[in-house]
Amino acid sequence: MTSNGDTLLKLQAITKVYGMGEAQMFALRGISLTINQGEFVAVMGPSGSGKSTCMNILGCMDQPSDGHYWFRDVNVGTLSRNQRTLLRRHYLGFVFQGFNLLNRTTALENVELPLLYRGVGRNERRVLARLALATVGLSGWETHKPNELSGGQQQRVAIARAIVTEPLLLLADEPTGNLDSQRSEEIMDLLVQLNRERGITVVMVTHEPDMAAYAQRIVQFRDGLIERDVCH
């Protein structure tokens, strides 16, 4: 399944300003971006180009200084902190560069975590988490703790945690940044597979053109603006 044309999210003239007066610094200078359901978008750009700020706004963890963010038909700017959290809980999944798994917690429990906050019962949690781990190819590793897993495996657990709730949007912040090229390819294949087979929209920040090449669309940031927006 590829892009089906339905708009998933829409950024309109988003600016983000840090600091006040003289020390004012623009992280985003008015960007507009529309992402459709089922797209795989790579976000590129040098450090300080505003791509991380943009990701934080997409992930409802930060509010823009100006402009509008529509997630489906919801104006995110009008939501309270709690409502944005609930939006994350129900529709978003996150994958980070540093994996961000809970230490001293088994892979299974890590994957169960988002279900716990969704109020899913214990047994159903177990079943869904096992399924998600199987999807990322980690059947049999359920009881291993992060420090007993390789980097690639840890990132797979993180991806399992992100998709166990069947999110509409998967936000991946340099998911291959800490991995060697072979592990990176495996992770990218996994993301592409999730995008194609499950229709999960993926927005991925990356520095590496090799990784960006997996995406259908590349958005290039520079100095708080979108420099290029190319579809393959």
Partner: peptide, 9 residues
């Protein structure tokens, strides 16, 4: 991590 995943304050 918990907050990002969807834990309320």
């Amino acid at each position: 991590i918990r907050l990002a995943i969807g834990a309320l304050g």
